[in-house]
Simulated scan of single mutants.
Amino acid sequence: MSSVAERVADLSQARRPFVHATVVRAQEPTSARAGDDAVILDDGSIEGFVGGVCAESSVRAAALDTLSSGNTMLLRVLPDDGAGFPDTPGARVVVNPCHSGGAIEIFLRPVLPRPLLGVVGDNPIGRAVGELASFLDFEVKELSSYAGTTAVVVAGLGRNEEKAIRAALDAGVPYIALVASRTRSAVVLDSMNLTDAERGLVRAHAGLDIGARTPQEIALSLLAEIVRDLRHGTLPAPAVGIEDSRTTGGPVAVVLSASAPRRAVDPVCGMTVFVDDDSPHAVVNGQDYWFCRVGCRDSFVAAA
């Protein structure tokens, strides 16, 4: 089995969103130790070790929340009383009802694919766009395929523009920036017989109006418009392994995979549990209940 570090590298290369969870503090008798780590995928599966089954369930639930928000989180998993474990302001606290006791703090870091940007045009403007986009942490591609691309900047300056726009539209790219004057933009788009929906995806005379003149200033106006739309949630950022994406004013975040397991709340201890084939389950008065462990299930059924 690959180490967690190798798995992190493989997932990043594959542009698969995941959470890297690392135990930063542990108090006996918990089975986890500081430095233990794991990855949690957008389907809720976990690889690695950050504690026993009760702690793991809390980590998986919190990790999926960080993928949805795009924000890091410090998770504190405490025994019933939490006595003897220093307070940490700003952390999320969950109670661990398992008999083993102990307490742990786990840092959850969502790792999301960088937005893909395609640049068409081997000229000063195209090169400036690529350089600035890399500085802004976009992944810049020389495109053989436009699939999965967040945006394409067409800076052909009269060369192969129609071909590039058509290929980007056919690949479902949600943002296509045409670098041209308003007059020439209209001529190019009118010649392509685009539908209204297709034309709406092409930003003619693209970029924010900042009075740009140099290639670097034009690149700044183009990237400023793309970043604005990403942060405001009007521009999706497709990526392999996720169904959709959105923003929360911070990092670009993901909508969880359709294969992510359903969650339920244990009616005895209040823990969030994942509903799968291994989850303790009971039907009481015609209603389904799921539990973090068999003990919670048995006590609930006995009291019903």
Rank of each mutant, 00 (worst) to 15 (best):
H20S: 02
H20Y: 04
H20G: 03
H20F: 02
A21N: 05
A21I: 12
T22N: 05
T22Y: 01
V23C: 03
V23R: 01
A26R: 07
Q27C: 03
P29G: 13
P29F: 06
T30C: 10
T30Y: 01
S31N: 06
R33Q: 14
A34P: 15
G35F: 04
G35Q: 02
D36I: 05
D37M: 11
A38D: 09
A38W: 04
V39W: 10
V39D: 10
I40Y: 01
G44Y: 03
G44F: 05
I46F: 03
E47D: 12
G48S: 08
G52A: 06
C54P: 04
C54W: 02
C54E: 10
S57A: 14
S58F: 06
V59Y: 01
R60F: 02
R60W: 04
A61I: 13
A61P: 05
L64M: 15
L64Q: 14
T66F: 02
S68Q: 13
S68Y: 02
S68K: 14
G70Y: 01
N71I: 02
T72F: 01
M73V: 10
M73Y: 03
R76N: 12
V77F: 02
L78Q: 09
P79N: 14
P79I: 12
P79K: 07
D80Q: 15
D80P: 05
D81P: 08
D81A: 15
G82K: 03
G82F: 03
G84D: 05
G84H: 07
G84T: 09
F85Y: 11
P86M: 08
D87N: 10
P89V: 09
P89W: 01
G90R: 00
R92I: 14
V94W: 10
V94S: 09
V95Y: 11
P97L: 06
P97I: 12
S100C: 06
G101A: 14
A103G: 07
I104L: 08
F107C: 06
L108R: 07
P110R: 09
P110Q: 09
V111K: 09
L112H: 08
P113Q: 12
P113Y: 13
P113N: 11
L116C: 01
V119C: 05
V120M: 08
G121N: 09
G121F: 05
D122I: 07
N123D: 12
P124Q: 04
P124T: 07
I125K: 05
I125Y: 02
G126V: 08
R127P: 00
R127E: 15
A128Q: 06
V129G: 01
G130L: 07
E131P: 00
L132N: 02
S134F: 01
S134A: 13
L136V: 00
L136W: 13
D137W: 00
F138P: 10
